[in-house]
Nucleic acid binder design. Structure first.
Lengths: 360, 360
DNA sequence: AATGGCTGTGCAACCGGTTACATGATGGCT
DNA sequence: AGCCATCATGTAACCGGTTGCACAGCCATT
């Protein structure tokens, strides 16, 4: 019946060896306050000698509490998530929980499947940047406590980034350096995160009387940024704000290929701060503190789990502009093709609100 | 007794509703071959209507098979691991397993704790780049099937990288470009991976009659590489092989600060290929295919789990030199301080074999 | 018609804990 | 001394599945 021999002793063996009942052994590990200190000591000694460890599975079955939580992300390899996962992990096990990690590979169906499969083994879920539609998210939330990161669904506890403040700070910084025409290099058009960032950029640009052009990169990665660089070089701009650090880094590489120098020829601002100072020159970016998001999500979830009821929490993680070395004053004689004939810039800014999100 | 209401129906409710015994419902989901097709159909219909999903915890308790495996890594945020985790995840769930992820935060004690805690909930372990000493690894392996990645302990199934071939190819490449004096910028001195790479570099340098100098970076990250750049600039070398891509990238940034151009002034080779073409210029590196390692480890583990016995497998993942743009012919008039007075180069090469490893 | 083998299903024990309730011992109080 | 509250521990039911065994029904064989 059993697969691999576990070798682990059970509560009964400990009970026999210690000359007490199974209940007493159980209480030694779960409700020691009910026992005589002397008894506890004896059971502990025997347990130690036998190498007894309470079986979590059995405990979970009888209590209904598995001691596990699930964390589902769309793509572990996206550098936005590892710090988040790491922080969540650390906080979870401080609270006595182990973490099941799921990678949905950006597929809503896989996300659904993972949640269903894990449902019976975990007490609650943390869903980071879910790709699932709202209805299905709500369905899962009805079964088990669920906390969202980077998704704003009313009625569910959620952790969001203060994108607006970060983007505004970035654009204010550019304005103060005297940039007057800038670009926003957008991520996936259907992404909730991109919508947020783009809208924030538009509002901030208005506020500081800056002319903003939107350039699509489509994919949130280096390669897309690199491709967008060619487009940027043709625009009459002196600075660009990228969807994220990866895109920013790609833009830098693409412009370097064209012989441009940063920040002399153009200023670049990233988002997320996942590359820290590893770019050359070190990237000015908006830090989104994804680790804080992970930590707060766990905190919210454990609160829900102990209180036993969900509250409509909406927690906002502050963002912060980190000025490094990719932003500076625009050149007197800009290298950009202000006057040159150019392919028409993409100034249309998509306003549609997609029902499904993609990419943090 | 129960915490959050699960709302999930049990096998008994399905049995009653379908007018069969609990055993029959159970068999519908675990041994359908024993039942009449007609019965299966009826039970399935009822189960569907009620939203019944077999409770994994109960199943695990009675069968001893949890359907989970644990994957423990020293640091999720190290870019070497996410692809590995991702691949492991994908293969595990193809084989019907869910993955518990543990991050030991580079601490042997945390690693020990995680393994102990997860032991009762998983059928087997994958330990990537463990920080635990051999004795404790063996102790855990005695309880549950365990597969190692990046650690060579006899008697246990393990997945290793063909470091020697990769480093040799890198140095052969440099030799063919006419480099005669190069440096190896090492990682953590106590690291198993670093030992391997350094030894391989020494042997390969001998083979190609190249003079090799070892320069320590100590930590496997960008900052350490950056610091090492100052040291490198003072040495009479024309190329450097770094412990990993992160260090290589740091070296590039540090040298760029000094006004050096790559590969004109110096050639740089990384290891792991975790940055792909995101550096500027794109980094020549040895690809270690950590994703393959993850996939193979899962394969080994599921084999052990199904066969029920451990074998002394030693699987080697091939490595591959990927030539991008940071390597080239050495300059006629090298920029390095061949003749200049210099702080004495670190030519001593540590030979001690530490008992504990650090850092993949 | 009796025998035997199959097939499909049910019964009940079991996995390893937890916990409501029962019980016996102890000690303080009237 | 008698009563009752309190404390420490034991008894046994339960969590939700799985599975060895028993058994009924059916068909084929002799």
């Amino acid at each position: 019946m059993r697969g691999f021999p576990t070798g682990l002793p059970t509560i009964s063996q400990v009970a026999k060896a210690a000359g007490v009942s199974r209940a007493t052994v159980s209480r030694t590990f779960s409700r020691p306050d009910l026992l005589k200190p002397e008894t506890i000591k004896r059971v502990h000694e025997v347990a130690e000698k036998l190498g007894y460890v309470p079986n979590q599975v059995a405990r979970a079955l009888s209590t209904g509490r598995a001691g596990n939580i699930a964390l589902v992300v769309p793509d572990i390899a996206n550098p936005f998530f590892p710090p988040l996962i790491r922080a969540a992990q650390a906080h979870a096990d401080q609270a006595g929980y182990a973490v099941f990690l799921g990678d949905s590979d950006e597929q809503p169906e896989r996300e659904d499947m993972l949640l269903t499969k894990m449902a019976t083994q975990v007490e609650g879920f943390i869903l980071a940047s879910p790709r699932l539609d709202e209805k299905r998210v709500r369905a899962h939330a009805a079964r088990r406590p669920l906390v969202l990161i980077n998704r704003d669904i009313e009625g569910l506890p959620r952790v969001l980034m203060d994108v607006s403040a970060g983007i505004t700070a970035a654009i204010e910084h550019l304005a103060s350096l005297n940039h007057r025409r800038i670009a926003y290099v957008s991520g996936p058009p259907a992404s909730w995160a991109n919508q947020q960032r783009e809208q924030a950029a538009i509002r901030a640009a208005e506020k500081f009387a800056i002319h903003l052009t939107a350039v699509p990169a489509y994919h949130p990665n280096h390669e897309a940024g690199r491709r967008a660089a060619g487009e940027l070089a043709k625009l009459p701009i002196t600075a660009a704000v990228a969807f994220d650090d990866l895109v920013a880094q790609g833009i830098m590489a693409g412009l370097a290929d064209l012989g441009w120098h940063i920040p002399q020829d153009i200023s670049i601002v990233g988002f997320d701060d996942v590359l820290a100072a590893t770019t050359y020159p070190p990237l000015t970016t908006v830090a989104a503190h994804s680790d804080d998001a992970g930590a707060q999500a766990v905190k919210l979830l454990t609160e829900v789990l102990s209180k036993g009821q969900v509250q409509d929490q909406r927690m906002i993680i502050p963002t912060e502009l980190i000025i490094r070395a990719t932003t500076g004053k625009p050149a007197k004689r800009p290298r950009t093709a202000f006057a040159a004939p150019r392919s028409k810039p993409k100034v249309e800014i998509s306003q549609q609100r997609p029902e499904r999100t993609e990419t943090q």
